[in-house]
Design a protein around this nucleic acid. Structure first.
Lengths: 192, 192, 192, 192
DNA sequence: TATGAATGAGCCTTCATTCAT
DNA sequence: CATGAATGAAGGCTCATTCAT
């Protein structure tokens, strides 16, 4: 592929991505490329040199985001408490999304590679949670992904308070959970 | 107010709404008004005579949609089986949304009247389901609306098969459901 | 020419002209034909049946206006005090214009016939004023018309108070007037 | 603020202003921005990069014009013959306007700074002319501005020959002028 | 390579005018 | 004849993308 970028070029790429994250987080994917350039302190042309197309920029952004998220999940998948890892991750992602409209782009811009690995890590989190007896055995990875996606979208609606978001998540978690003696005198489970 | 439209005008209005439904269903609210006109087989000006503003067109569309949906829910709320009404409605709406991206507009275009009544009807469905012992008592109406909204959004992702959608819904329903005597065999969870 | 209109047609014509006078007085010639129709209580098509073109409507309007103004002037020219008639008329017209932006149209829409007769009546007013010794003899009709037109335009600027308008007119009248001793050689006037 | 434009940009800006001067001179402020672009040999977008709004373009144009005019007046106010400066300036401006309908914009587009200074300079010209005994002492600056404005407007009518214009101006000047024994025992005319 | 000006297609909207009802 | 819906050409403006400097 393209050989290693010059130092300043790499720096610019980073500045642009950082600016883009802000800009698209605020304005969603409709935000203008020019605004990204402005916020990055470069000229429009520079943005297009690095990302020939607005879609490319969005894709790159989402790849980054996914990598972070995936790394986060991967850590939970190896070091955390298996019983809570999935829920913890789910909650984190939804909260993050609420502050970052970029993710809407996930709908518009077709992703290819990395998303797979997110799915992989989520699958791992799920497996562990099931092994730990925290999640019903018949829940499948694609269902978790679907719930994740939905809830992230919902979190963008702007009308969600933190409280509503947490209560809503609780219902979904309840739906995922294996209910041994079926408690719910009080929903009785902690959320970090 | 405006008296009954002339026959041809009413026909055009209908054609425009139909075209708009298609166009916005496919392209979301960003789709162009011009495209709506083209698809309706009228000139741009005609669209604007009927809906002075793009937002007006979207509002009209959504009002229609909401009215249908609300009517649907209202019927379930009065005539159907209280235990299943909420779930039935939830599923119907999600399925419907999957084929109609217009609903995204619900986020962008501020609605006034009818949306309230949708929330009202949903609250009623919820109340009945709880009375019938089908839904946990601590579930609140706003949570149901939030789940509804999220799932509808998710259903737009395009990546959902009918099967995935149904399995995902089932998890949410499980989360809503009161599991005391564990009715509903086949919803199956771990360890009998 | 076109034979006498049916009674209702004539009534409509009048209603339209009346509405147009209002509308254009308020909004100038940019005002929309549709607004005229609305205010006249007829449909757009009716306006165009009577006046095939917006310009035709404006022309008709101005013809009417001119006729009134001309009649006004004609009366002053026959019955009033010769020494003050011209000034009186001048002032009236300017005041009237200030409240009626339609007159701007005089610039945009080429007039033909009637304006001549206005010029004629003004010439008559001028002649009498000169005979009465109230206006310098070398003042010519076209100059008076030019001053009239200019001042009417100026009166539209919106920034004129009644007071400013009167003081400005006074200067112009002073310029027209015959000043007894008449010194100032070189400024070129009659009777050295 | 914005640092010096690139050479080509400055060239374009100039081309646009030049084209705009022509276009608006011919068609008045209603003329289309697109026509300006066409005449300047640039794309529409370029015009909007330089002047984000049509009003901005008009303002820039008028600012330029006013600056020239003001500079012109300022020079007359300091170096010329006090007795004729005002008249000279008045005449120049009217002649200039006759060839430039843009000035009509002065009515439509709200100006801020420079127009004040034009009024200031005119006031100065007036003061000097009065000191020199060339203009009646009771003439006030706002009256001169009003006459100026009116006459410029009138000059746009297209129907003025150079000769008519000069004769008309002469009457106004006569109205401004101090006439030897200064008659005007009362302005002596009735106003209704 | 970065810059930032230029491009030009496309968007929403308005309005004079035409024409089916 | 009147009606009022339909037309379609502009118009002002935005923005992704290209390209001269």
């Amino acid at each position: 592929m393209s050989r290693p970028l010059r130092a300043d070029a790499r720096r610019n790429r980073a500045k642009i991505l950082a600016a883009a994250e802000q800009v698209f987080a605020e304005g969603g994917p409709e935000a203008s490329t020019e605004e990204v350039a402005r916020r990055a302190g470069v000229a429009a042309g520079t943005v297009f040199r690095h990302f020939p197309t607005k879609a490319d920029l969005l894709r790159a952004l989402m790849k980054d985001l996914l990598e972070q998220v995936t790394a986060d999940a991967a850590e939970l998948a190896t070091s955390g408490d298996p019983a809570t890892g999935l829920f913890e991750f789910f909650g984190r992602l939804v909260r993050r999304t609420a502050a970052n409209r970029t993710v809407v782009g996930l709908l518009a811009v077709p992703l290819s590679g990395p998303i797979t690995s997110l799915a992989d890590v989520v699958a791992e989190l799920l497996r562990r949670a099931q092994e730990a007896g925290a999640v019903r055995l018949e829940v499948r990875p694609d269902e978790v992904m679907a719930l994740l996606e939905s809830t992230c979208q919902g979190a963008l609606s702007g009308a969600w308070t933190d409280d509503l978001r947490d209560r809503t998540l609780e219902i979904i978690f309840f739906g995922l959970r294996a209910h041994r003696p079926l408690p719910h005198p009080g929903t009785g489970w902690a959320e970090s």
